[in-house]
């Protein structure tokens, strides 16, 4: 049986996609359509990547206001890039093949996540403390990133102003195939493990009691999250609170934490917000580049409300 609310979300998502593809068509149809199709795929991918990584991360940390970005994993991706610059030298880095570069970055990010984030999660520190550390690490790596960018090319202010908001307009389509494969693999993996994730959500001790190999699960989840964060960051840039917004919205609609329903719901919400939002901003508001800022604003407000409510219980 398929949940009625999922069907509704699916229909809405489909409507958004159709609208995205058809509204305001002009000129060379074949060209415009293929251009839009590529963008659509990219948006869907980013949506799924953010949705799944956030849900899995929240589940494995047993914390409902965390997202990988708040914990600084997307900043860690920037750090991975910096590392590569240092190891290869600025020029060699910029001339590297995009796909190869992305592959190396994904692996580096996975390694960094295991090296830095995993130990933090395992210390069972105070949640507020962890979040604060994540945010500060984010500031650190972003500053480092813009420093390095300036050192490599002092005149290129465009790079130095490393955008602090996601940009859904010029998506890096070179990486689309690689990213598609990664996202698909992650999706299959998560779907396969959806019941395990339900148990993991009960917390470490209960999960171990129910026969889960906790360390292995934690590592697997973190690797998955790292690869998905790499996908979304490489395609559109940093997305601090987006995942939080998606999960909060989806949870409102499906009112369950069961992964077999929550994961598709969050993914669909993500697609609706991103594809629908992009259509809306492009055709009605005439300025599509601000979508990233608007959703980030909304996500930030959601975060504040959750933090506020959660801390006052």
């Amino acid at each position: 049986m398929i949940d009625r609310r999922l069907v509704f979300l699916g229909a809405l998502a489909l409507a958004c996609m159709v609208a995205f593809m058809t509204i305001g068509l002009r000129g060379n149809l074949g060209f415009v359509l293929s251009l839009r199709a590529i963008k659509l795929i990219a948006l869907i991918e980013v949506g799924i990547a953010i949705a799944v990584s956030t849900v899995v991360f929240q589940t494995v940390t047993a914390n409902r206001i965390l997202t990988p970005s708040i914990m600084g994993i997307d900043a860690l991706y920037l750090f991975a890039q910096i590392l590569l610059v240092f190891l290869l030298g600025g020029l060699a880095y910029t001339s590297l093949d995009a796909k190869l570069k992305f592959g190396v970055e994904v692996v580096a990010l996975m390694a960094l996540s295991l090296g830095l984030i995993l130990p933090m999660l395992r210390t069972r520190l105070d949640m507020g403390f962890l979040l604060l550390v994540g945010v500060v690490i984010g500031v650190l790596f972003r500053s480092l990133h813009s420093l390095i960018a300036r050192v490599i090319d002092p005149n290129d202010f465009a790079v130095a102003q490393a955008s602090s908001y996601a940009n859904f307009n010029d998506i890096n389509s070179e990486l689309l195939t690689v990213a598609s494969l990664l996202t698909l693999a992650a999706l299959v993996f998560v779907w396969h493990a959806r019941h395990v994730l339900d148990v993991v959500a009960l917390g470490r001790d209960t999960a171990i009691g129910l026969g889960i190999n906790w360390t292995r699960t934690q590592v697997a989840c973190l690797l998955l999250v790292a690869s998905l964060v790499a996908v979304s960051t490489a395609l559109v840039g940093p997305v601090a609170f987006l995942g939080l917004l998606f999960v909060a919205l989806a949870e409102r609609i499906v009112t369950t934490r069961r992964h077999s329903i929550l994961i598709p719901a969050v993914a669909l919400v993500a697609i609706i917000v991103l594809v629908g939002g992009q259509t809306l901003f492009q055709h009605l508001l005439g300025n599509s580049s601000t979508l990233g800022v608007v959703v980030e604003f909304a996500g930030g407000v959601v975060f504040l409300i959750l933090l506020w409510r959660g801390s006052r219980k």
Partner: peptide, 18 residues
Amino acid sequence: QPFLVPLFGLVYGSVLGA
């Protein structure tokens, strides 16, 4: 939970920044 206050402030600042 003293760490919640700066966290709240950082995010509040980024919302204003947005």
